[in-house]
Every structure is written in structure tokens, then in C-alpha cells.
């Protein structure tokens, strides 16, 4: 602490100091939470707004090892932990939310290919770019009644909400990347006897692929937001459905673990995309 210099750009905090600085905010957050929880529990031992460790543990146990309230499944007394987990509330919700999420992710692939064409083929660019630019500014949530008419209120309206919500942004982003591919590369490919397909898919697409994956990584959170919005509006299962239901009676003991679980899942997807990117594209220099 001899040279305390937070506003010095050229400062060089040692390893120990920077490590402890990086955990400082976490510690403060947890500390504030605990302090609030303790003071609220002193006043009201059953407080649910800021559950204490015991309540949280009970909430986690209920989410992970007990079936959802609406399910008929009753675990046998000797059911294994795996068996219980497999029928648990969090498992069920994760599976149904995850399915929606990954179907939307799959549906983004055609959007990315369209973006490739918009960026590369003048006819596609002329036909689509302005429309996508316009469509990108539409707030997807405000279209919900229309989505309900077209897709019903089941799975497809939620998936459509995600896709309509993030696809225009991704299309614009990817078509910009495609346009940023140096003209030299495209000309060069044509001089090597490549045809249009080769240039589009084997030269340009391969080159922008790592950036496309990075763009997807940035859009994971918007996707999750749209998924949550959809599930909170109409659903009978899913992570956000559970959070919405739990809020009806202030089940923060279940909501908080769910929120952390969602954060962890997003982190995991992001990490795996990053690792995949590094493995698949060793040549990529960000």
C-alpha cells in the first residue's frame, strides 16, 4: 500500500494485489447481502425477500432434488440422487428452456447465411439490406400479439420472439463483416478459378466464421432476455416461467439459485463457443 495509485495508468499493482482487487467487489456484494439478510431476519425471522443461507440451501435442495409442484412424479423413497435430479424442477425447466434456446440458435444459421449473401452478392444486398436495417429497429416485444396470431402461444412464438429479436442485429453485423473482407481476397479467389459458391462459402464465409461466432457470443444475453420475456408472458415450464411463478409468493430462495444457474449456463455456453472458436480457427487473430 506504499504507493497507492488507482488513477495512475502506468501503475503496476503486483499479482497478489490485483487478485485481491478483483475479488473485492464480490466480497462486498456478498457482505452487503449477508448484512441485509441478517438485519432483516433479526426483524422478521421468516423474511423471504433476502433469504439467509439456510433458506437458500433449502431452496436449492427443493429445486435440484424435488419435482416441480405441477408434476405428478413422486420419487420413491430409495430413489437415487441422479434419479431425483433427473425428475427435478430445475432439470425440467433447464431442458425446456434449453430446447427453445438451441432451436433458436439453429434458426440463426439461415440468418447468418442470408447475411453472407447480403454482404457479398449485390442483388441480395439491394433486396434485403434496407429492409433488415428497418426491421432491426423494430422492438420485437411490441409485435407479440402478431406473433401470437402467427405462431400460436406455444413453443414457436417464443422461438420466433428470440429469432426476430436477435436475427436482424446478427444479419447486419455479419453482413458488415463480410463487407470488411478485403476486396483483394475475393478478386484473388476468382483468379484462382473459384466460382461464386467457392468465393462465398469457401473463402469469405470461412474467413468471417470466427467473427460470426464472436457475434453470437455477444448475442447470447439478448437471446436469453427474449427467451425470458417469452416464458414470462405465456408458458407452462422453463427457467423464466419458474421465476415468474416464484415471484408470486416471493420465493426468492428459489429465484436466486435460478438466477445464478442461468448466469452459469450462459457463461458455460459462452466459454464453449470461445474454446470452439480457438480450436476451429487457430489462424484467427482478433
Amino acid at each position: 500500500m506504499a504507493n497507492f495509485s488507482p488513477f495512475d495508468i502506468q501503475a503496476r499493482p503486483n499479482r497478489l494485489l490485483s487478485q485481491s482487487l478483483s475479488v473485492l467487489l464480490f466480497v462486498i456484494c456478498i457482505g452487503l447481502y449477508m448484512q441485509t439478510s441478517i438485519s432483516r431476519h433479526r426483524e422478521n425471522s421468516e423474511d423471504r425477500v433476502v433469504p439467509n443461507a439456510r433458506q437458500l440451501a433449502a431452496g436449492i435442495h427443493a429445486s435440484v432434488f424435488e419435482p416441480a409442484e405441477e408434476d405428478d412424479y413422486i420419487p420413491a423413497d430409495n430413489a437415487s440422487r441422479w434419479e431425483r435430479l433427473h425428475h427435478s424442477m430445475i432439470w425440467k425447466d433447464t431442458v425446456s428452456s434449453g430446447r427453445r434456446f438451441f432451436i433458436s440458435l439453429l434458426l440463426l444459421i439461415p440468418a447468418i447465411l442470408l447475411a453472407l449473401h447480403i454482404g457479398l452478392f449485390p442483388w441480395f444486398g439491394a433486396g434485403f439490406l434496407r429492409f433488415v436495417l428497418f426491421f432491426d429497429k423494430i422492438v420485437a416485444l411490441s409485435l407479440l400479439p402478431i406473433l401470437f396470431i402467427v405462431f400460436g402461444i406455444d413453443e414457436w412464438s417464443k422461438i420466433a420472439l428470440i429469432v426476430i429479436g436477435v436475427a436482424p442485429t446478427i444479419i447486419l453485423d455479419v453482413s458488415q463483416m463480410v463487407r470488411a473482407v478485403p476486396q483483394e481476397q475475393i478478386v484473388k479467389a476468382f483468379t484462382l478459378d473459384a466460382n461464386n459458391f467457392d468465393v462465398a462459402y469457401r473463402v469469405v464465409f470461412r474467413q468471417v466464421m470466427p467473427q460470426v461466432i464472436n457475434s453470437l457470443r455477444l448475442n447470447l444475453k439478448p437471446m436469453m432476455l427474449f427467451l425470458f420475456a417469452g416464458e414470462m408472458i405465456a408458458a407452462s415450464d422453463g427457467l423464466a416461467y419458474r421465476i415468474a411463478i416464484m415471484r408470486r409468493h416471493m420465493g426468492m430462495d428459489v429465484i436466486l439459485p435460478y438466477v445464478l444457474w442461468v448466469a452459469f449456463l450462459l457463461f458455460l455456453i459462452d466459454l464453449s463457443l470461445r474454446v470452439l472458436n480457438r480450436r476451429m480457427h487457430p489462424w484467427f487473430q482478433s
Binding site: E70, P145, A244
Partner: peptide
């Protein structure tokens, strides 16, 4: 226990119901 409930936000329940004759 055989009822199939769909939790629907009250802000959207009217258009969601009127536009989905399958529900």
C-alpha cells in the same frame, strides 16, 4: 391434476387467447 395450465401474463392474455382458437 390433469389440467394443463399455461401461465400467461395478464398484459397479454386477451390477444393471446383471442388469437389462438386452439386454446
Amino acid at each position: 391434476s390433469k389440467l394443463r395450465l399455461i401461465n400467461t401474463s395478464d398484459s397479454d392474455i386477451v390477444p393471446a387467447f383471442l388469437n389462438n382458437t386452439s386454446n
